[in-house]
């Protein structure tokens, strides 16, 4: 019964808080809406040695989001200390470029993507900050306006995450709409066990999201791999599920990570996750774990849950089984 209620709640949330970027194709309308709200928007691109992709991102974002339709008020690259020409390339195409170590120097400098995101809050001016990774090969303005738009139309929403089509084998109009490997193997099972409401986020680890400043400035920032996971848990705890939105940005082409790197990522995420559980008083006092693993599939642009009832039963050591002991003469 509890599982049914959860499924119903999630279905409702998915229907009302999940978008497709094509809904916001009319950028002129978006611009009018932005002017109506009076909000300002900053686009932040965290970088570390991204010279091969950063030029294209800046050219396209500047042209489409500043020159053609001034939806974005500033585009900034926050760099962790690139040793290639990332900053030179970004600057040559008109981006504001910053070395993270120069921002809030009295706070010191730590290397990590989360550090760049955190310092961006201090450096940038926007009421909304949209973070977009620099390694996207098929960059398109939708990677920004698709995330910002829900915040312009839905004041109750504070944190909008991207998710993507992952073109694995699919047939008959149904496609798996999962996250990456770490999401499906680690984060989704963890959320399913302890925070089933958060399983509605199709790709909780995606690096693209837009957030209102008043939320960002109240969030602690792990500087490493755990930043996205802990954000989600913190926003959920403070503002609830309705604060989240998510937008389907279609295909994202990027570097594929090696399994060893995913292991490191998983380790960082686990650290953050368990740390958050401790902070919520769940340490040593685990709540009853749910048995439903929630995955998602998409039919056209509708997203539906697939619930798997998984009970990991456990067998005792064979030597504890009387028949076995009898057979073996123990």
């Amino acid at each position: 019964m509890e599982d049914f209620a959860m499924s119903t709640k999630l279905d409702k949330w998915i229907k009302s808080n999940t978008f497709h970027h094509s809904q916001f194709f009319d950028q002129l309308e978006l611009l009018k809406q932005k002017e109506k709200t009076g909000l300002t928007i900053s686009l932040c691109i965290p970088t570390l040695n991204e010279e091969s992709t950063i030029g294209k991102e800046i050219v396209i974002f500047r042209s489409e989001l500043m020159e053609r339709y001034p939806l974005v008020d500033e585009i900034a690259v926050i760099d962790s200390g690139s040793t290639d020409k990332t900053l030179e390339v970004a600057s040559s195409f008109g981006a504001d470029v910053y070395f993270a170590g120069d921002i809030l120097p009295e706070q010191g400098h730590k290397r990590g993507k989360g550090e760049n995101l955190w310092k961006a809050i201090h450096q940038l001016k926007g009421d909304i900050i949209c973070y977009v990774d620099a390694d996207i090969k098929n960059i398109h303005p939708r990677f920004c306006y698709g995330l910002v738009a829900p915040l312009l139309y839905r004041p109750e929403m504070s944190y909008v995450k991207a998710f993507y089509d992952r073109p694995l084998a699919f047939s008959q109009g149904i496609r798996p709409s999962g996250g990456g490997r770490v999401t499906e193997i680690l984060v989704r099972p963890l959320f399913s066990l302890f925070y089933p409401e958060l399983t509605g986020l199709v790709q909780p680890l995606s690096g693209e999201y837009a957030v209102r400043r008043h939320v960002l400035e109240r969030l602690p920032f792990p500087i490493g791999y755990g930043v996205e996971t802990s954000h989600i848990m913190d926003v959920y705890k403070e503002w609830g599920l309705e604060a989240f939105g998510q937008t389907d940005l279609d295909k994202r082409v990027h570097r594929n990570q090696e399994t060893l790197s995913l292991g490191k990522m998983s380790f960082g995420i686990l650290q953050s996750f368990l740390g958050r559980m401790k902070g919520m008083g769940m340490e040593g006092n685990l709540p009853e774990m749910h048995n439903i693993l929630r995955q998602f599939q998409a039919v056209d642009q509708q997203y539906e849950q697939i619930c798997h009832d998984i009970v990991e039963e456990e067998r005792p050591p064979m030597i504890d089984i009387p028949q076995y002991r009898e057979k073996m003469g123990y």
Binding site: E51, S52, G55, K56, E88
Partner: peptide
């Protein structure tokens, strides 16, 4: 692969 790269 139709990806384009942009340098200065």
């Amino acid at each position: 692969d139709h990806a384009v790269s942009v340098s200065p």
